[in-house]
Amino acid sequence: MTARLVGRLDTPAAAEVTQEIQPLLDHAGSTIVLDCSEMSYISSSGLRIFLTIRKAASAAGGHVVIQGLSNEIRQVFMMTGFLQLFEIK
């Protein structure tokens, strides 16, 4: 299952996304692809959403692949230690 994240994943957007990720969590036992090629910003709230999806996938025997990370967002993943938590393509 693939989810496309577009624009800024800041705190207000994260609240909205939290409501919308349920279909992903329902498929947590499979491979979940998070397409970030059109995501321009991520805040801590956005990182927490990624973490929620990862935990659900891990518990259900699935895994999460992130693709299309911009350099700026990749840097956020690196400085927080999140880079090692996901398979990043």
Partner: peptide, 21 residues
């Protein structure tokens, strides 16, 4: 390194891998 990278951000979550990294 962490101060330099994160000091000017409002990122308030880190993974425990950040230290060894």
């Amino acid at each position: 390194i962490a101060c330099y990278q994160m000091g000017l951000t409002d990122l308030d979550i880190v993974a425990s891998s950040v230290g060894p990294q």
